[in-house]
């Protein structure tokens, strides 16, 4: 090693660089490369066949992929909007509580403490058409005579999945919005009341603009979450019936491990990441705008 004298900072950073390269950079490069090959897990030699953009082109004309893509966006839209509405309502109720607020806050976080897999199993049981709690309740109450095929009919299955998703994650919105409400100075609200606002106008013109940045933070977190939704769907319907609840990542998982078409799956995955990036950029811009608007100092 004559003549080569690496600087001390480089040497000190070297272990970190090596570890990062081994666990992040290398897999990333390999997976990106494999998305340009017809790599199948059952035929290792295909790893070395370079096919250029063929996988990507075939994705573009793959109806199943676009359905999954659209369904993911739809789930994102429904889940995020409902979670925000419910979270906002919950947060405002808890904020009003004069006693027991700590306990309520803890209770509110309960759904987040369960593994999504377990949430999936629980809702699968609840929505079961024969022995499920939901049908049982509906029939006992006389609201319906027949068993509703919750997880068997495509649209109902999608609704069931949305409900499970919303149940498990509304608290993220509730917690963040509650943080916003608690951080909010009380005087502007009182000023608004004196200025002639009805309770609704006070919320619309004073409270909501203040809480909005907090809602956008929750939106950013949750959009990443839902865009990679996998576990609840995998357990509840496994993308069924007949692919009617297939989302991006269940499709990617199936392509990779059931069909063993790893090259194609990687191409899909890279394509899907674009969706996540797009949502993150969108909500970040919204957040920045909302923060500037309230003159936030954080």
């Amino acid at each position: 090693m004559k003549g080569f004298k690496p600087s001390a900072p480089f040497l000190l950073l070297l272990p970190a660089i090596i570890v990062l390269a081994a666990v992040v950079v290398l897999p990333l490069i390999l997976s990106l490369y494999s998305s340009f090959t017809p790599f199948r897990l059952t035929r290792p030699e295909t790893f070395f066949v370079f096919v250029g953009f063929r996988n990507y082109l075939s994705i573009l004309s793959n109806a199943d992929f676009w359905w999954a893509f659209g369904r993911t966006v739809l789930l994102l839209t429904i889940a995020l909007n409902l979670e925000m509405l419910l979270g906002l309502g919950l947060a405002m109720l808890v904020e009003k509580a004069t006693r027991g607020q700590r306990i309520l806050r803890t209770l509110m976080m309960f759904p987040m403490m369960f593994s999504p897999i377990l949430v999936g199993f629980q809702f699968k049981f609840m929505f079961n058409d024969n022995i499920g709690l939901v049908n049982n309740a509906l029939q006992s109450l006389g609201l319906t005579q027949d068993a509703i095929p919750w997880l068997i009919e495509g649209r109902l299955a999608f609704i069931a999945i949305s409900i499970a998703e919303i149940w498990s994650s509304t608290s993220i919105f509730a917690i963040l919005i509650l943080a916003g409400l608690l951080a909010m100075p009380k005087e502007p609200i009182e000023a608004a009341r004196v200025d002639g606002c009805t309770p609704w106008q006070t919320f619309r013109y004073v409270t909501w603009p203040f809480v909005m940045p907090f809602a956008y933070i929750a939106m950013t977190i949750r959009s990443l979450d839902v865009a990679r939704a996998y576990d609840i769907v995998k357990i509840m319907t496994d993308g069924g019936p007949a692919g009617r609840t297939e989302l991006l990542w269940t499709l990617v998982g199936r392509t990779a491990y059931s069909d063993a078409r790893m090259g194609m799956a990687n191409a899909m995955a890279y394509f899907s990441i674009l969706l996540s990036i797009a949502f993150t950029v969108y909500f970040y811009n919204k957040l920045a705008a909302a923060r500037a608007q309230i003159g936030a100092e954080w």
């Binding site: 100075p185 005087e187 502007p188 009182e190 000023a191 608004a192 009341r193 004196v194 200025d195 002639g196 606002c197 009805t198 013109y205 004073v206 603009p209 203040f210 608007q293 309230i294 003159g295």
Partner: peptide, 20 residues
């Protein structure tokens, strides 16, 4: 009567301006 129906104005110690 709620504050809005009393035809009063109030100036607060912390100003209470609408930040947005």
């Amino acid at each position: 009567l709620p504050p809005r129906s009393r035809n009063i104005s109030m100036v607060f110690q912390s100003y209470a301006l609408y930040p947005h």
